[in-house]
Structures are given as structure tokens and as C-alpha cells.
């Protein structure tokens, strides 16, 4: 039994090893391509022998098939290979094939930037709240892997700007910046070698700060109700809180409660609630509490 296993293994080795060797030898090349070619540049390759042959260049970005004359050099124009990547070449002449591998690299000249700026909306005065990521591409939309100096600038509506620069690594650079204290749209720009890309970041007011309300009776109009109105609601940086923000009025009285969620309109929230003598009326927006009023003008 063991001898059969031995024989089988020997056979496998005998069959496999020359195969592997052949595989390795297939990579031996007589075709001399430059090891690296910059995308969009012209170059030529010399050949040996005589007669005609077919040249195949295959890569994930480009495919070329060309009939060439052996013994002459093969020329490639700037438009022939412009996608960066690893290419394999075969020169087939009759039964013989010559192989080669080479790389097309991205141009060093940045032409476009993919700029990811996030978030598109954030509260004011938030440290490191804004992030920018830039990918640098050449004119053929190849990622430029060589380091590039990229400048990021975030300028708010008043013109104040934060500027940072970063060096790209493997084609990407990133920064984080603070949002400004003043609400409004801010311009966020990335720039490399005079190539710019802009984004707009909305800097919005933060939570309301110290909500204050007043209460007054409706008099003859409706004695049973009390009118409530806030002062203009602002965040802690003085920015007006946007209209539509909900302000909750709650009236608590003996054995009961009334409440209403009112949106800010033109900066203030106002409503009417049933009037109860001795009722405590409070105001809040989200988790921020405002002042309290003890109402003594009710029925």
C-alpha cells in the first residue's frame, strides 16, 4: 500500500515540477519595455528578429492589439496608454511569444480633486466639526500616488478664514476644522497646484440659550385664556435660533396641566393656554429650560 502512495507522490512531483518550471520560464522576456511609463507620454520599444508579429498589451485600463514588424522599434503615442496600472504585453510571432510587464504611472501634474467635505450642516463653534478629504487625480483621472501639498481653507460669511495644509499620501489628504461662531454658509475649499474645489458648509445656530417668555391676559377678548410669548430666541453665541424650532409651553395648575408645542415664527414663539389662577407656566426647547411664571390673573 505504502509503495503505491510513494509512487503516486513521485508521479505528482514529476508531473508538477516541470509544469511549474515551465510556468516560470514563460515569464522570461525578450521584449524590453521600460519598467515604468508615465501616463500620456510617448515611448518606444525595440524588437528583435524579422517578419511581422502581433503585439498585445493588456491591463485593467487599456487594451491594445497591433501588428508590428520585428526588428523595428514600436512607438506609442501620448494617447495610447493613459490609464495608470500594471500591464502585460505579448508579442506573438508564429509559434513564438515574447512577454513583458510594465507599469503606467499617473502624471505628476494634478488636474482634478475629489473633495469630500462633511458635514454639509453643523452647529456653530464646534471644534473639529468639519472634515475635508481630498483625492488628487491627474488629467487622465489617475490617482496621483506621489505626495502633493494640498491647501484647505474654510471661510465663514464674515470673511474670516481658517487655512490648513496637508500632504497627500497614496493620493489622499485630509483635515479637520472648527466651525465658526457665526451662523451662516461657509466656503470650504481644497486646492492643489491651482486646481480648486469648493463646498458650502451651513453653520447653523446651536441650542437656544436662556429662553425668556412673558404672559399676559387677553382682557375682554377672552378672559379664560392667557397669552404667552417668548422674547427672540438666540443661541449662546447670539445667533437667532431658526424659525420652526419647537418651543414647549407647559402650564401646571391644581390637578391639571396644559401644554403646547409651538414653532418659532420670526424668532419668537407665542400661543394661548387656558388661564388658571396660581398656575405655573414654564417654557423649554428641547432639553433647554427657560424661565417660569406663576400666573395670578386667571379665573
Amino acid at each position: 500500500m505504502r509503495s503505491w502512495v510513494t509512487l503516486l507522490c513521485a508521479l505528482i512531483v514529476v508531473v508538477t515540477v516541470p509544469g511549474l518550471a515551465g510556468h516560470a520560464s514563460a515569464q522570461a522576456s525578450d521584449l524590453r519595455f521600460p519598467q515604468k511609463v508615465e501616463a500620456g507620454t510617448a515611448f518606444s520599444v525595440s524588437t528583435t528578429g524579422s517578419g511581422s508579429a502581433t503585439l498585445y498589451i493588456i491591463g485593467p485600463g487599456d487594451t491594445i492589439r497591433r501588428v508590428v514588424h520585428l526588428g523595428e522599434s514600436i512607438s506609442f503615442g501620448p494617447d495610447d496608454l493613459h490609464n495608470a496600472g500594471h500591464y502585460v504585453a505579448f508579442l506573438v510571432s508564429g509559434s513564438s511569444t515574447q512577454n513583458a510587464q510594465f507599469e503606467v504611472t499617473a502624471s505628476h501634474q494634478a488636474a482634478t480633486l475629489s473633495f469630500l467635505a462633511k458635514p454639509s450642516r453643523l452647529p456653530v463653534n464646534l471644534p473639529n466639526g468639519v472634515s475635508g478629504v481630498a483625492y488628487v487625480f491627474d488629467i487622465f483621472r489617475n490617482l496621483i500616488l506621489q505626495p502633493q501639498q494640498i491647501s484647505f481653507e474654510l471661510s465663514d460669511s464674515s470673511g474670516r478664514a481658517q487655512i490648513r495644509s496637508a500632504t497627500s499620501r497614496d493620493g489622499v489628504a485630509w483635515v479637520k476644522m472648527n466651525s465658526a461662531a457665526k451662523a451662516g454658509p461657509a466656503q470650504f475649499q481644497a486646492e492643489v497646484a491651482s486646481v480648486r474645489n469648493k463646498r458650502v458648509i451651513q453653520q447653523v445656530p446651536g441650542d437656544p440659550c436662556s429662553i425668556r417668555m412673558t404672559a399676559h391676559g387677553l382682557g375682554q377678548k377672552d378672559k379664560a385664556r392667557v397669552a404667552l410669548e417668548t422674547e427672540p430666541v438666540r443661541d449662546c453665541n447670539g445667533n437667532p435660533v431658526p424659525d420652526g424650532t419647537i418651543v414647549t409651553f407647559t402650564e401646571t395648575y391644581q390637578g391639571g396641566q396644559s401644554m403646547v408645542d409651538v414653532p418659532l415664527k420670526r424668532g419668537v414663539a407665542k400661543t394661548e393656554l387656558p388661564s388658571h389662577n396660581g398656575a405655573v407656566i414654564s417654557v423649554a426647547s428641547g432639553v433647554v429650560m427657560g424661565n417660569e411664571i406663576r400666573w395670578s390673573g386667571g379665573l
Binding site: 514563460a26 515569464q27 502581433t54 493588456i58 502585460v88 511569444t97 490617482l143 500616488l145 493620493g171
Partner: peptide, 23 residues
């Protein structure tokens, strides 16, 4: 390994080792 066929006929096969950058 990359194998190239022209109209169904194998042109050749090459073994490649390289580095890819993917985003």
C-alpha cells in the same frame, strides 16, 4: 495570472505580482 485570448485562442499567460491601490 492573466491569460489573454484572441478570438478564443490563447495568446499567452503571465504571472503578475504588483500592488493595487483601491478606494
Amino acid at each position: 495570472d492573466v491569460e489573454v485570448r484572441d478570438h478564443g485562442k490563447t495568446v499567452g499567460t503571465q504571472h503578475v505580482r504588483t500592488r493595487y491601490v483601491a478606494v
